[in-house]
Simulated assay, not measured.
Amino acid sequence: MTISNPIIRIVDDEAVIRKALKFLLESEGWAVEAYEKGSEFLVEDRPSLIGCLILDVAMPEMNGLELYQRLRERKYEVPVIFLTGHGDVDMAVQAMKDGAIDFIQKPINEERLLSAVAKAVRYDETHRSWTISEEEEK
């Protein structure tokens, strides 16, 4: 069973980026939850909810690649779209090999991001091995 309103999660240490992404995605009808740090995301997120994760690569404390590795170790199946202002080809290739849906450089091309989000949510809806509706989670 899937839920009707997927959650788009954003983890980015830059408040301006979080707010801009949240505004863009909500204006397209997506439900959005935004986090400043990976540690905050790990504590507060509800992994049972369908959606995707937009994850900044360069963050203090725990960078996006480290958070992604933790999610994989926990078998957290949410599809990930990486954002970076400092990425390189090797980093992008490795992220894609590790299962990321996309790797997008800042400044962000809105159409590419929206397309990646739609693709990631479709993937989560069809490939997740288990799902829980919001009613079941309560």
Rank of each mutant, 00 (worst) to 15 (best):
M96P: 03
L114Y: 04
N5G: 00
N5A: 14
F23Q: 12
T84I: 06
M59P: 02
Y76S: 09
S115D: 11
A15E: 14
R46M: 12
P47G: 12
I54P: 00
N5M: 10
Q94N: 14
I108Q: 01
Y123F: 15
E137K: 10
E135M: 07
G85T: 06
I3M: 13
D12P: 05
P107D: 08
Y123G: 04
L49K: 11
E36R: 09
Q69V: 00
V89A: 15
A20R: 10
K37C: 06
D13G: 09
P107H: 06
S4A: 12
R9C: 14
R72D: 05
S133K: 07
I104V: 05
A58R: 13
E111T: 13
E134S: 11
E36M: 04
E33N: 00
L71P: 01
L24V: 05
V16C: 01
P47N: 14
Y76W: 11
T2Q: 08
I7G: 03
A58T: 13
I17G: 01
I10H: 02
A95H: 00
A20E: 11
T84S: 14
L113T: 03
Y123K: 15
K106T: 05
F41Q: 05
S39D: 15
I7S: 02
I54E: 01
L21T: 00
Q105H: 10
M59Y: 04
F41N: 00
E14F: 08
M1F: 11
Y68N: 12
Q94R: 13
Q94C: 03
E136M: 10
V80H: 02
E134Q: 12
V16N: 08
D90L: 12
V117D: 00
Y35D: 02
A34H: 07
A100H: 07
G87V: 05
V78Q: 05
A100S: 11
T84E: 06
F23M: 13
Y68I: 03
E33R: 06
R9M: 15
G99K: 04
K37R: 15
A20F: 09
L55A: 02
D12L: 09
E26A: 05
E14L: 11
V43R: 14
E36T: 10
R46E: 15
A31K: 11
L113F: 04
A116T: 04
H86S: 10
V121T: 10
R74W: 04
H86M: 09
V11I: 11
R18G: 03
E33A: 04
G85W: 04
A34C: 09
D12Y: 09
L42R: 10
R70F: 09
R72I: 06
P107K: 06
S4E: 15
R112I: 12
I7N: 04
I132P: 00
I101E: 09
C52G: 10
Q69E: 14
I10F: 07
Q94S: 12
K75I: 04
A118Y: 09
E33C: 03
K106G: 07
R46Q: 15
K97M: 10
E110Y: 09
D124C: 06
G29K: 06
R122Y: 02
I8S: 02
H86L: 12
R128Y: 05
E110Q: 15
K37F: 13
A15F: 13
P79C: 06
A120W: 02
H86Y: 12
A20S: 15
L83H: 01
Y35M: 03
D88G: 14
G29V: 06
L67S: 08
L67N: 02
L67A: 08
